[in-house]
Design a protein around this nucleic acid. Structure first.
Lengths: 346, 346
DNA sequence: CTGTTAGCGCTTTCAG
DNA sequence: CTGAAAGCGCTAACAG
């Protein structure tokens, strides 16, 4: 047992073993030049003393941190939790640390965090964008500093890097058609900001599905929800109370499907009797409302893994610039299954 | 505009300003000894060049990282997401970074992560324990290294530090009585491991409520769920299919309430008609099943904030040992409200 | 195969 | 009020 409070670092190990710091360092890093004998001795003592290398000293020296940042708009959403889970899975297996930044949907925060990261705290950034503005300066700054950035979900189309998305257009198209096939023709759309491709593509899928099925598009049925529950609630309540109320709803994101569910309850209507609802959402949450809601479940965990994978590939090649590509993962429509079984489909 | 690729650090700033590194450093750290004039000049250039100090160099030097670790069993759970949200809120406002470690309920992972953290990567640790084993060695190691640890939710009673919990006993008691008051006497309990206080106290609350209401305790009604969905599902299915099936269920955690919901659906029964269900859960998820499930909602966001607050207090006093205290936050029983309104109660 | 040396970028004495 | 110098713990030439 070592004496208490002796600092255990390369220096103290070296002293005890009567070696130099560099030899000890090399032994610990499994350098091929070191004799097996020495390696054994070093590792033995290191273990005995429970040596843990100082990550900050190493990072300072080699200018790599084995740390990545994840910047997301919010975390108390099933989608982002699942994505983080996927990222963590990938990162941990490669010995990377995960720094979490939550912007709370604020573009200003996003910019601030990106600026913070210019100092080399992290080797790379995984990010889903926030806010309405779509200014790229802070992203470009990261890339200029040779910090690779991978986008997922709310991607920035203009950025020349890897973007991991769901097949938003197809999913929205399929989802809308799903309602149409069940005889619903008065379909409302609860949409999100069209700043990012997910907003644009989901809306387009909805519109095209209507059009290709010879269903007229009604302006009043298209609700652009803001980032304000109360406001959205009122809009939806008004819509569902109107004389010509829709009998089907397509929700572009989970929160809106849930909000819709609440409004329907409030109004004493039923799902799916009075109104059929389908929307993007993830399995553990909205699908529990099974079988009243139908869910378009995104492979959130896989999105996390894919994003991390792309980033690590770049990092392996010393932060080599990422190719400007879109990787599209498929969502599945889930109806009338248990949460657990549905999860198997992803 | 600065010339491209010039490294911007104390040295380059000092050179440009014709000052020494130390003066620049002091100016940036708002040292009182520096003349206002110099400070202005330094800050101006720092801003112009978008200087970001190297956190690793600083950490190495001052042996503090302004980083805390959060170790949780899982993240794709509403409770832990909300806790992280609270922690992040507190941490960000104090300029701390957040490192996330997910153990996936494995005690071995928990031990590994704690050992990793002995190297001083973080200034403190916030943790909810994992697994069945309750060995304290890895926790004690952290504290010996003067790294304060604060527990929340799944706390380790033996550890002499701050523990943030919900009023588990009272909540379980109230919840069970809630069912009794509605005329339910055959109440099953879907429990969790009794390794931690949350498991023990919730069970005790359930048992005492039955006892004080002169209701006999039936062994068969007490299901100790494992960490395996399929297995648990079978157990609950068997219970709810039995001749003497319960007409009420108390779920000790969200997942079990949801599982119960699925089983009930599968069996063609209804909630609350055939079976009334109440359980710990959080608002955005299970409460959407409103009004069929009744929820005991924990103040998860506040738990995160309280935990972080306690940790920062210790850090302010240079990682002073935390007092061995339990801070108990109150949960609320929520029934028949919208998610949004219910959230206001916390 | 091992040791010596320099230095990553920062803070902090100590000296003026 | 400012500067010079040392050193945090580590890695990587370079030298032997």
């Amino acid at each position: 047992m070592r004496f208490e409070m002796k600092e255990v670092n390369l220096k103290s190990l070296a002293k005890e073993l009567d070696l130099s710091k560099s030899t000890v360092s090399r032994a610990l890093n499994d350098n091929y030049q070191i004799s097996i004998e020495t390696k054994k001795r070093v590792l033995k003592l290191a273990k005995e003393w429970n040596y843990q290398l100082n990550p900050y000293a190493r990072s300072l020296r080699i200018k790599k941190s084995k740390t990545i940042a994840v910047i997301i708009p919010e975390i108390a959403s099933n989608f982002f939790s699942l994505v983080i889970n996927g990222i963590e899975d990938m990162a941990r297996s490669r010995g990377y640390q995960l720094l979490i930044y939550i912007t709370h949907e604020s573009n200003a925060n996003e910019i601030q965090y990106c600026n913070l990261l210019l100092n080399g705290r992290v080797d790379g950034v995984l990010m889903s964008m926030s806010g309405e503005v779509n200014d790229l300066t802070h992203i470009e700054a990261l890339m200029e500093h040779h910090i690779p950035v991978v986008f997922f979900d709310r991607v920035c189309e203009e950025a020349k890097t890897v973007k991991i998305i769901t097949n938003d257009y197809e999913s929205a198209y399929m989802g809308t058609e799903h309602l149409i096939q069940r005889g619903v023709t008065k379909i409302a759309y609860l949409g999100i900001s069209q700043t990012y491709s997910i907003g644009k593509n989901r809306l387009k899928g909805y519109l095209d599905a209507l059009q290709n099925n010879q269903i007229g598009i009604k302006e009043e049925y298209i609700i652009n929800c803001a980032n304000n529950y109360d406001e959205n609630y009122k809009k939806v309540e008004k819509l569902l109370s109107s004389a010509d109320r829709p009998t089907g709803v397509f929700a572009a994101v989970e929160q809106h499907a849930l909000l819709c569910y609440n409004v329907v309850n409030k109004l004493g209507l039923t799902i799916p009797g009075d109104i059929k609802v389908i929307g993007f959402s993830n399995l553990t949450i909205a699908h529990l409302l099974n079988p009243s809601l139908t869910t378009i479940a995104q492979p959130a965990f896989e999105i996390g893994r894919e994003a991390a994978k792309a980033l690590f590939e770049s990092l392996l090649k010393n932060a080599a610039p990422l190719e400007n590509t879109e990787i599209t993962l498929k969502s599945v429509i889930v109806e009338g299954q248990s949460t657990f079984n549905a999860a198997q489909n992803l």
